[in-house]
Simulated assay, not measured.
Amino acid sequence: MLHNTGNCWINYDLIGAPDAPVVCMTHSLTSDHGMWAEQVPALLAAGFQVLRIDTRGHGGSEAPKGDYTIEQLADDVISVLDALGFHSGVHMIGLSMGGMIGQVIAADHPGRLASLMVCCSASRFMGDGELMQGRIRAVRESGTLDSIVAANMERRYGPTYRERRPVRWEALRQTFLGTKLDGYFGSMHACLTHNVEPRLHQVNIPALVLAGSADPTTPPADNRLIASKIPGARYVQIEGAYHFPNVEFDTEFNRIMIDWLNEVRG
């Protein structure tokens, strides 16, 4: 389904009983709402309605030219929620860039969310700036994401995942390659300039921060920092997980997720 925010068209997927509590899910850079495929059956079985949103420049959403900010991406999500009539009580789950979006919504839009689950993310850019700029240059020079996909896949999944789930691994790789270039450049700017850390003390809802112990992109320290800045937030990590524990360790991730949601929905 498509929604016009007034700035761009945003694609989203909404399934589940109309009267069920809503879980809104936001994905990482160079992914789309399909990265949450392993979570949807568990959420529906637990009695939730699932809203998955393609960030601008990704999946079925439009890719405006120019630099984006995480605040703009958060506004896109708010626009979709408003259009659907979800003005409060939404449970937010975001991973990596999606977790940045979730933090901004929780900090800057009080009353909109019932809970927040941040996965493998950061409160501000703390990565290797030279590495990221090198990726941007490589994509600009080649005109394709092919030049960086292999290195990114290695940082997202452990060395055995491709052997265990070759079809799923390839689907995720193709999704990466399908990201619109304007969306990639705009979203990279958003991630590199992200800094919600000074505002996290404003978050006044239950929050869970989840990390992968072996994540080279947003290591546990980055996620512990988020949890330390949000009043009352809880921290948990999945041992051996890289950057996409929801895909690679879906059974354990789903158990943590459903236990958390059952606790906070009251």
Rank of each mutant, 00 (worst) to 15 (best):
R173E: 08
M100G: 02
P198C: 12
Y184C: 10
D13L: 00
D108E: 13
I105H: 00
M100K: 08
S121Q: 07
M153K: 09
P21V: 09
I238L: 05
H87T: 15
L200Y: 04
N262R: 15
E248T: 02
H33R: 15
S213W: 06
G111D: 08
I93Y: 05
L172F: 06
L73W: 06
R155V: 12
V247N: 02
G57H: 03
F48C: 01
H58W: 00
T144H: 10
L208G: 05
L177A: 11
G16Y: 04
K180V: 11
P18C: 06
Q174K: 13
K65T: 14
L131M: 15
V77W: 07
E62C: 03
D215V: 06
Y68E: 07
R112Y: 00
Q103Y: 02
H3C: 09
L116T: 10
R199A: 15
M257A: 12
G98K: 08
T175Q: 11
R56I: 00
R224G: 10
N254R: 00
K229I: 12
T218C: 11
C120R: 07
A107C: 02
V80I: 14
L44S: 04
V50R: 00
G127Q: 03
M257H: 01
I15G: 05
L84R: 05
H109K: 12
S115P: 04
R173V: 08
R56N: 01
V167F: 11
L172D: 06
E197P: 03
W36R: 09
A138H: 08
S115I: 04
E263Y: 13
P206N: 01
N204V: 03
D250H: 09
V264R: 03
I256R: 07
F249P: 09
G99V: 02
A20S: 10
R162S: 13
N152D: 14
V118K: 11
S213M: 06
D128E: 10
Q133A: 15
L116P: 07
A63H: 01
R124T: 07
R162V: 14
D259P: 01
L95M: 14
F253D: 04
T55M: 05
A37I: 12
A63I: 02
V264H: 04
E130S: 10
A83S: 15
D128A: 08
I78Y: 07
I256S: 03
Q72L: 13
G89R: 11
R165T: 15
G212Q: 00
D259C: 08
R137A: 15
I226T: 04
P206I: 01
H27F: 00
T175H: 12
L2C: 03
L2D: 05
L131I: 14
